[in-house]
């Protein structure tokens, strides 16, 4: 069996597969299916300074080859996370990434301060949530605001800092450069693409928030293209995500330039997807004589 471990911003992962924020809660539910150490890491449900209730339901709609969701960052707040969820997570033998979202810059800074004093392995800056009125994506759609928020959090964050980017922008490579210049240690991308479904019988949007974030196989080629473009523009590692549902997708995303991967929606279809994807990558590496996952990263030969 091939060695699946990767290193991102100085953090060692047993596997390139990380559970994507918002799809995996704080890990308890999926630990019924497999040891969480099968995953390289867990990016926890996005947390805010105070508890948030999230959006009214319905919060999800199916699409061709995907889903649209608008949960709206329902979470118990950063203090609850640190006291109640983190201790158990740290016993699971996998990298723990705290995903943080704020209404204001100050809230991001306060959460970075608090989490820097815990055993969290990395902090992922969520400036790309499409489903909340304030905060979230408002910080993530211009080079200036991404640079400013990344720079501020950098000052308050002693952990490796990952900045999670929105695909709902004109030029994602320019945004990524701003994050890098402001001190990000890695980029994770892509968050969901905004989308909408309408019930033609009731003439109402299916999701109560009207719009939501599209994920699943439907977004995969968009994500691959964006990861490839950003990989060609920056020098810090990329955690690639967006519609990976089988091992072939994982290898393709690595080839486009990702150093590690996040998966989410595919586990709603098949909770055992991480185990199967790990096995598939391993067999591929053995077949191709590849010794390290890092050899696959960015190995595409463009025309």
């Amino acid at each position: 069996m091939a060695d699946l471990s990767v290193n991102v911003a100085g953090v060692h992962f047993n596997s390139p597969l990380i559970a994507a924020s918002g799809t995996f809660g704080f890990g308890h539910e999926y630990s019924e299916f497999f040891k969480l150490s099968e995953l390289g890491g867990i990016s926890c449900k996005g947390i805010t300074l105070k508890k948030r209730l999230g959006n009214p339901p319905p919060r999800i709609a199916e699409t061709p080859s995907g889903i649209i969701n608008a949960v709206g960052l329902q979470n118990p707040g950063v203090d609850h996370f640190i006291e109640k969820d983190l201790p158990w997570l740290k016993e699971q033998g996998t990298v723990i990434i705290a995903n943080i979202a704020g209404n204001t810059s100050e809230e991001y800074a306060m959460m970075a301060d608090k989490l820097s004093e815990t055993d969290v392995d990395m902090i992922e800056l969520n400036i790309s949530c499409p489903n909340v009125k304030s905060g979230g994506v408002q910080f993530g759609t211009s080079c200036e605001s991404v640079g400013a928020i990344t720079g501020l959090v950098r000052k308050h964050c002693t952990k490796p800092l990952v900045v999670k980017l929105s695909p709902n922008v004109t030029d994602i490579a320019e945004i990524a450069k701003s994050a890098e210049a402001a001190g990000a240690d890695a980029i994770s991308m892509i968050n969901t693409l905004t989308g909408m479904r309408i019930d033609i019988e009731t003439q109402r949007p299916i999701i109560r928030n009207n719009t939501g974030g599209l994920s699943g196989p439907a977004v995969f080629p968009v994500a691959v293209r964006m990861v490839w473009q950003v990989a060609n523009a920056i020098n810090i590692p990329i955690i690639g995500m967006g519609g990976i549902s089988k091992w072939q997708d994982a290898v393709e995303m690595l080839m486009a330039g990702a150093a590690a991967l996040q998966i989410g929606t595919c586990m709603f279809t098949d909770p055992y997807a991480p185990v199967k994807i790990n096995a598939g990558i391993s067999e591929y590496m053995d077949r191709k004589g590849i010794k390290s996952v890092s050899e696959i990263t960015g190995s595409v030969s463009p025309w």
Binding site: G22, T23, F24, G25, E29, P57, V71, F268
Partner: peptide, 17 residues
Amino acid sequence: EERMGCGIGACLVCACE
């Protein structure tokens, strides 16, 4: 009943007030 995602309590979409 509510529109549902993971089915096990991880994704938080099937909210009930």
